[in-house]
């Protein structure tokens, strides 16, 4: 077992564990915290896979902004605890389906007619400034239009959020 594989397995366990924790915890705040941990684990995966920028963006945007917003809303509304699963029978079908999906995926992937290949240790390329530069150039050259469209989407979302959360004026 190489150190890469070891690292992968540990992180995979952590991420699956935290995902399950998110799924199963009764308290929404704990769910959010588990998700933050999960996001962090995935960010480390990104680092390992040679995407440091995305990893940092993941932490900054997801962990730093989105999840904080979640926490904020949870605390603001005081809705930490909504009873989750009293009636286990109702969840048999989804659970069976989920199990089937996972098994199917694993079977699909392992029985593929040709292997999908290995991921080389990318840590050499992580630390070169060139990768960042390439990413930036790709983003602002080939993907400029999607980038701009995304910015418009963000603008629209911002306006929408402001409109939605604006206090209604008295008398209306």
């Amino acid at each position: 077992m190489t150190i890469d594989l070891f690292l992968f397995l540990v992180l995979a366990l952590v991420s699956i564990g935290t995902a399950l924790g998110m799924l199963l915890s009764r308290n929404a705040v704990y769910s959010a915290l588990f998700l933050v941990l999960n996001l962090g684990a995935v960010a480390i995966f990104f680092l390992l896979l040679g995407a440091p920028f995305i990893a940092m963006a993941q932490i900054t945007v997801y962990a730093g902004a989105i999840m904080v917003l979640f926490l904020f809303v949870i605390m603001l509304l005081g809705t930490e605890e909504i009873p989750g699963m009293q009636n286990w029978k109702k969840f048999i079908i989804p659970a069976v389906l989920a199990g089937a999906l996972i098994l199917e995926s694993i079977y699909l992937l392992t029985s593929a007619s040709r292997p999908l290949g290995l991921i080389a240790n990318p840590s050499e390329s992580v630390n070169t400034a060139q990768a960042m530069r390439d990413l930036g150039e790709l983003l602002f050259d080939q993907y400029l239009l999607p980038f701009e469209v995304t910015s418009i989407l963000l603008l629209v979302a911002m306006v929408g959020a402001i409109v939605l959360s604006k206090p209604e004026k008295a008398g209306k």
């Binding site: 389906l97 989920a98 089937a100 999906l101 199917e104 995926s105 079977y107 699909l108 029985s111 007619s113």
Partner: peptide
């Protein structure tokens, strides 16, 4: 959402069977 999920499982199952 459950229906959608069912659809996903069925489609992947179909792919699986076809491949097999």
């Amino acid at each position: 959402a459950l229906s959608v999920f069912l659809g996903v499982v069925v489609i992947i199952g179909y792919l699986l069977i076809r491949q097999t």
